[in-house]
Design a protein around this nucleic acid. Structure first.
Length: 470
RNA sequence: GGCGGGGUAGCUUAGUUGGUUAAAGCGCUGGCUUCAUAAACCAGAGAUUCGUGGGUUCGAUCCCCACCCCCGCUACCA
């Protein structure tokens, strides 16, 4: 019985929640629920990342103040809680007063440690786009959108973080904690990146150019660059820096992030923590991307999967099921409506749903009263979840479902009478109770219905849990 | 270009300290059955044999070399 802190990354609120974030947060939710189930005290955090240039520009475009703009978006993200039946305890917004103070405090501490300095920063600026361009964005040294224009070189005074100083410490971190990053190959990837060489990164923006951010302490001309600010949310969510007691009880915690976030979460953020004299994260789980029909989702291809739409069409539990059972833990995954419906019919309607109806009907027909009994979540399911292999945990549960169907057929339970019938039915009810118990972290609503149906002593035919799709 | 991940039945994947007939689920076909959501259960077909071409070996999906394809990162948009 310990304390367990888990946080998702905070999605940037310039577009609707996408299926990738739905995967991240449903997995975090399942992990949090497993810990609660075995008696841990859990703090599960999520929220929204709301500063930065893109949001500032979008807000201007929409003729809104940035604050209004992000308020609307944050509300949309909070709708996920109900849509996906999430059990997070805290929703932090990087525009929260408390968070802003924390983002300034970590800056002060890094600076006090000598890791923040001001220097000229040269950037390439496209006059056509009115935007800074990074080298990786350029094609043949030109802006791909304005290939005839020359890029302007602009100088700007920026604050930089002495990332390079932490190369050795980071490598030590990876070496001393072999399971710091899951899966292992991501740890090797980042280790190689860090070992190659680290360049200090800019952590501020000139306010005149981009005012939508956290003020840099003691320098009103600059705001913190959004990464520096957003990463701090993982600890400001715990009341840091004021509430040292709470922070000390929960941190270090576990993080979950997409593979595009590898560097930020497992190197930059860890270096920031080191600089501020704080413990590094306990573990970071890095997941893959989601494609649709073998291709990257894109508006132009028209293959974007909207998690909210899927919830409206198929239900919360079905979406959670697909995410947890069918998405690969560590590699990229794929989803299409066809695959989704196939899995729904095969596993939820014909498998779980049918079995629940089948057994509950038999018990009702037999008029059998069953003793109440609490089951314990199976160790294997917990182990699989701890290793982030939710798909394998689900496979274990579905093996029980299949096994139960096989047993019913082999014993022809519906034909039995008397004691034989009674023994067989009690066995089936226990199996369903176990399945319901094991499903709690993953399909909480369905699990609740199953446990209620088979609670005893009287058992009635269950409602249809997952109507078959045509 | 560099680094990393992947390329195994229609689909999703498992699998290697190299070894007889390459595994599972879904889908498909047939059978059986009726307690159940026309579901379940049983059986079967299905990989020109594991991206391509070489090599090492008595023997390679698994080792080596070269190449092809897909994806991500390549640092200050997030």
């Amino acid at each position: 019985m310990g304390k367990f802190y888990i946080t998702t990354t905070l999605p940037y609120v310039n577009s609707s929640p996408h299926i990738g974030f739905a995967m991240e947060i449903v997995r975090a939710d399942a992990m949090a629920r497993v810990h609660r189930l075995i008696g841990d005290e859990v703090f599960f955090n999520t929220g929204t990342d709301e500063h930065g240039q893109k949001i500032y520009q979008e807000a201007l475009k929409a003729n809104q103040t940035p604050q209004n703009y992000v308020d609307e978006w944050a509300a949309k993200f909070e709708l996920l809680k109900k849509a996906l039946n999430l059990s997070y305890d805290n929703f932090i917004r990087t525009t929260d007063e408390h968070h802003i103070k924390a983002a300034q405090e970590i800056w002060r501490r890094c600076k006090a440690n000598g890791d923040i300095y001001k220097t000229k920063y040269q950037m390439k600026y496209c006059i056509g786009c009115e935007l800074e361009k990074t080298d990786s964005e350029l094609v043949g040294g030109k802006c791909p959108l304005h290939p005839k224009m020359e890029l302007e070189i602009r100088d700007e005074e920026n604050y930089f973080f002495r990332f390079s100083k932490y190369q050795r410490w980071l490598i030590d971190l990876y070496d001393s904690q072999p399971d710091f990053i899951v899966p292992r190959f991501r740890q090797e990837e980042i280790k190689e990146f860090v070992a190659k060489s680290l360049t200090d990164f800019s952590i501020s923006r000139l306010k005149t150019r981009m005012p939508w951010g956290v003020d840099v302490p003691d320098d009103p001309d600059h705001v913190e660059y959004v990464w520096f600010d957003a990463l701090t949310s993982y600890i400001s969510a715990l009341g840091w820096p004021e509430d040292e007691k709470k922070f000390g009880e929960w941190w270090p915690g576990i993080q979950i992030a997409g593979k595009d976030n590898l560097r930020q979460q497992t190197a930059m953020w860890q270096a920031m923590l080191m600089s501020a004299g704080l413990p590094t994260s306990k573990q970071v789980f890095v997941e893959g991307f989601i494609n649709s029909g073998g291709q990257k989702m894109s508006k132009s291809l028209g293959n974007v999967i909207d998690p909210i739409e899927y919830v409206e069409k198929y239900g919360t539990e079905a979406v959670r099921y697909y995410i947890l059972a069918k998405f690969s833990s560590f590699e990229d995954s794929d989803i299409t409506a066809e695959k989704f419906e196939e899995a729904y019919n095969a596993d939820l309607a014909n498998g779980l749903g049918n079995l629940v109806a089948r057994v509950s009907t038999m018990v009702e027909n037999a008029g059998l009263a069953v003793e109440e009994k609490d089951m314990k979540v199976s160790d294997q399911v917990v182990t699989m979840t701890y290793g982030w292999t939710f798909d394998e945990a689900m496979t274990l549960i579905w093996e029980d479902i299949k096994k139960t169907d096989t047993v019913i057929n082999e014993k022809q339970v519906w034909k039995l009478t008397g004691d034989k019938q009674k023994v067989a039915l009690i066995d089936l009810v226990d199996r369903l109770r176990q399945i319901g118990t094991d499903l709690q972290p993953f399909l909480p609503e369905t699990a609740g219905k199953i446990l209620k149906t088979f609670a005893g002593p009287t058992i009635k035919k269950s409602e249809i849990l997952f109507p078959r799709l045509k």
